[in-house]
Simulated scan of single mutants.
Amino acid sequence: MTPVLEARGLVKRYGRVTAMDGADFELESGEVLAVVGDNGAGKSTLIKALSGAVIPDEGEILVDGERVRFHGPLDSRKHGIETVYQDLALAPALDIATNLFLGRERRRRDPLGTVFRRLDTKGMRREARRVLDELGIDVKSMSQLVETLSGGQRQAVAVARAAAFGSRVVIMDEPTAALGVQESGKVLELIGRIRDRGLPVVLISHNMPHVFEIADRVHVHRLGRRVAVVSPKTHSMNAVVGLLTGALRMADDGSIEEVDLTTGLSR
C-alpha cells in the first residue's frame, strides 16, 4: 500500500551541523507509528519537516504518493496534517470550544448563506461537544475556560482539535510529558481511539513503556537518519534502546546484531 505520509532522503543543515542526514520515513494507514531517538538524533527536525515548520535542504516529502513541498505549517494543514506540539498552542483564557476552532472560527450566516462578522458561538460549541463526545473526552461544558482544566484535559483538547481537522495524519510531540500515570493512560486511550477511527498517528516519545503500549511500529532515529523500523510484537524494549544508542544495529537480513562501539564493527 502507498504510505499516507512518506519522506525520502531528507537533509537539513544548520551551518556545520547536519540535523537530518538522508532521513527516510513512512507512515501507513490506520497505524500508530512511534518515533524514538536520543536527544540530538534529529527526530524533532524530521517531524518539523513533515509538519511544514522546517524546509529541508534536500529530499522529498510525499502525501498519498504525491510529492508535495511545504513552505510552512499552513501548507501541511491544507494536506490534512495536524500537529500537537508540547506547548499545546492553547489559549488558557479562552473556552474549550474557542480553542478547538482557534484560527478556524466559524461566522454566523443568514438563510441565504451570507456570512456575518459575528462568530457562530453556539454552532462551535455544539460541534466541539460532538467531537469530544465522539473521542470519549469527559468535560463539563464547552464554555469552560482552558485554564481551569487539568494537564490531561488540556492535552485532550489539543488532541481533539488535531483529530477534528486532521483528515490524513495527526502528529503528537511528547503528548504524555509532565502528566501523571492516570492522565497519561487517558491520553494513550485517546490516541488509540483516533487510530480506531482510521486516522494514522505519529507519536514522538521518550517514554518506552508508553511506546510499547500503544504503537504498532517503532521508527528508530539515530544520527540524523532512520536506522530501523521494528514491531513491539517482535522486538523487545531493550532491543529498541540498543538500536537508538548504537549498541545494536539492524542487519541487511532484518536481524539485529551487536556492535563493537570501539571499532564500529559487528561482533
Rank of each mutant, 00 (worst) to 15 (best):
D216H: 09
E174M: 13
G72C: 09
A91D: 13
A156P: 03
D38G: 13
A41H: 08
E60M: 11
Q86N: 07
V36A: 06
V4W: 00
V181Y: 12
V84W: 10
K233V: 08
I204G: 02
E66S: 10
T245P: 03
L149R: 05
S255T: 15
G42Q: 12
E60I: 06
E82D: 13
V63R: 12
A178F: 07
P92F: 11
G198H: 06
V159E: 05
L179V: 09
L145S: 08
I61P: 07
L203R: 00
I137L: 01
D253S: 05
E258T: 12
G242T: 14
I194G: 11
D110G: 15
D87A: 09
A19E: 09
A7G: 00
L90S: 05
Q153D: 07
M20L: 15
L248Y: 10
L188H: 00
A89E: 09
L203K: 06
F25A: 11
G113R: 04
G113P: 12
L50M: 09
A162K: 11
L74S: 14
D110Q: 10
V36C: 09
I96K: 01
L88G: 08
A41I: 05
D110A: 13
A97S: 15
N39I: 07
V17M: 06
D64V: 00
L132M: 15
G224M: 10
D133P: 03
V115F: 11
A7H: 02
A163Y: 07
L248W: 03
I55V: 14
E257M: 11
D133Q: 03
E58R: 15
G246D: 03
R161G: 05
V229A: 00
V241W: 08
D260R: 08
M208G: 09
R117W: 10
R106G: 13
T176F: 05
R225V: 07
I55K: 13
L135E: 02
E134V: 02
T245K: 07
R197E: 12
R161V: 02
N238T: 03
K186W: 00
L94F: 14
T245N: 10
